[in-house]
Nucleic acid binder design. Sequence first.
DNA 1: GGGGGAAGGATTC
DNA 2: TCACGGAATCCTTCCCCC
Length: 892
Amino acid sequence: MEDHHQDAAVRVSSSGADLLSRIALNDNKAGMEGLDRDKINKVILETSKGSKFYENELKKERQVNQRIEKMMEQKARITKEQMKQAQAEVDKLKCELERGRDLGRVIVHVDMDAFYAAVEMRDCPELKDKPMAVGSMSMLSTSNYHARRFGVRAAMPGFIAKKLCPNLVIMPTNFDKYRAVSAQVREIFSEYDPHFMPVSLDEAYLDITEHLEQRKLWPETMRTHHMCDAKTDDAGKFADESEKDGLSPVLFEDSPCSSTSLSGAEGKAEVFGTSAEEAVREMRFRIEQKTSLTASAGIAPNMMLAKVCSDKNKPNGQYRIPPERQVVMAFMKDLPVRKVSGVGKVTEKMLAALGIVSCAQLGQQMALVSLLFSETSWHHFLHISLGLGSTYIERDSERKSMSTERTFGEMSDAEEQYSLCRELCHDLAQDLQREGLKGKTVTLKLKNVNFEVKTKAFTLQYAVCTEEDIFAATKDLLKVEIDSVSPQPLKLRLMGVRVSGFISVEDKKPLQRSIMGFLQKGGSDPGSFTQCPGSALKAEGGSDSASFLKLQSTEIKVPSVSEQIPKSTGPKQQSFFQRAQSKRLQQQQEQMSVIISDTDTTNSSSDAAASTLPITNPQSDTTSTNTNSGTDATGYINKHATLKPSFKISTQVLQFLTCPVCNREMKDVNLTAFNHHIDECLKGSAMDNEHTDSDAGELNSEPPASSHNLSCNGEKPSTSISLPVVETDDGNDFKTPFFSHRTKINEKRLVVPNKKRPLSESSSKASHTTHNPEAVVTELSSDLKGSSLTCPVCSQLQSTGDLALFNCHVDMCLNQEVLLEFRGSHPPVDHSDAPALKSVRGQLGDQGRVSKVREKSKRQGSSHLPPAKKTKVLSTKHTIDKFFKGNTRQNV
DNA sequence: GGGGGAAGGATTC
DNA sequence: TCACGGAATCCTTCCCCC
């Protein structure tokens, strides 16, 4: 291996030939030591040369070399003083890390040997002595150890593998079968660590610390296992004794002798000890008995080391690093950095250019590395050099994206491309719905015939999961790409669609009933959101309030993808009021029926709206609230999908509406009039009770005395709907972009109408950063402190001038189940005893969520709290945390 | 200058 | 004979906007 790394370094410095390294054989894999690399590389090169793929690889190689050149130039500019400072910083961190070194856990990484290939060989004994691989002529998933002798390995195209090994047998993948075997193996894992972390079908991390404690107390009988006791549990064919003999799990001639691979040993019992090694040996023994497949394992004090260890004695072996610092450091000393998970070929090459090949060298050069790499990266490297890794196995980590992509022969026809795009959206939508997921960001991935990859993303205002919704976004993205090369055709070889930015489970719940719901006393409950795609979309997308229509549309304009590409922030020249006004004019021109369009999306889509506004589909002429048909509640879809006719909302007479500003109840007022009323209220005339009510309905109640406290500073108030954006898991304060003062985290705040920041933007940002569209709060100025405040939800004057306490109160109002009854009897919620609310906060919203996670973490006996996953703000911290605590795949 | 979205890349299995 | 995947995650860089 060392030679290989040095070769790489030499190639970098030489010209021309160095471009080979990218497509050269990667022999960083068990069973591939001592191969004739030159010969193999020659075959690979000859087979690849001249192809588009090869050309693209060359291009990428050049880019990496340029990166290295740049880095070297940077290195040349580093002064002694800088190095000294960097060294001090590194030393300081090193000390801290040493102090925190935890050697108390026993982490195991188990990896099935050549898993797919082994399963195929098990089920097809004729393959046992043949070089074989699983995959296709385009790509191999894995190969057996016979094939590895020829240089055939995973991630190699089958046709090249065939050149290297003409006798290679390529078996198609059979994931159902692998999954079934994997389930058997996982069953065994769970007996050693019920919360083990599967990495893939054939790999998992376990923390067996607790198991070992218990194990010490076990009688010998509990540590005794019989050979072949489980073979009959496998697929029926294995029940046949005659077949069993020929199925040695040994995949590789010179692999370590398996304790169970001896035929004729059936029924024999084996007793295992109580040590970590014995426990893992037992686990592997049981896996082999149950599946006829072998596994390798690594035992170490942390995940990073365990992973490296599992590769040490592969196949069918195990390796343990005892929990002693010196032993760990000795192990790391000669370990090539490339062996560490997360260090790939590019990182390897960059480090090699600095003369760093082993982890010991990495440790010695940390000061330099810290000056040349990002903080995230060099912290990562420092951990590696010290043999540190996560001692906490993260359980149940949430999925962050879901995608589907397809490679095909050259496709140049636009119609075909759209058609494929839709197909992908269809597939993805099914997958999303199967898992009950909805995401806001839709990404289109394209690879042209030159293997150049391009991704285009668009973040929608609302989470989507239906074919129509996803397609509506992706087709526009695709159109932009097609147009960009027009009149030339866009020549593709791959297309993919991804949805990310999932809303959390909590977000899907109607914590806050629709505003319409409580503004309208007599309406039906619109808050019963379901997971049904259409309604769910509506629930989120349409915040339901016709009375808040204008308010929301200020903030939550849903521009079309077309409008947004390239990046655009939408029409900013017009104020919201102007836009809303023109929107209404437009609506009026449409003769009593309005198309649910961008700015109105949030209103028209809601169940609440549906309960009041007859939604009619002019095509079917039936009243319907089902929008899951390509015309979903979002105007965006209507406008751009152009797939289905638009639903229309007729501006018929509304029933009861309560002005969110003056809190007056209005009866039998139409939407336009109601909006106009709010306009007036907001303009300030309402403050003096000078409503221009000519077009408003009857005012049924007097506003509370201080109902206009919300419009602060005597300026023209702008009302916005903002969302909680500040959340962390640790209870620390941090400064938000919207506040000049420090805000306690996890407080859903009343946000400030800031004259410096147009609300439309602040709110739009807020809505981008949040995942909780239901949690609607109103902005308030921080300088309100000291004055009395009126809750915009319950309309009660609050005795406190303290913003935090007041926020607590509003949180309560917004989230409490009280809302369920709110519409019915409309009892004022008296939460003037705000401090008492704090104790309730924990049950609500994100605070509650964090509490739950903490609880879970506690139960799992870990001091590590899974980091908050909600805000982009925290992403860096989050990923670093993850890296230190639980993530095994970190890039640099 | 910093936040945040978009785009491109690196890495893994 | 032709022919180099699919899915997921995280990181860096760029750019817009305030």
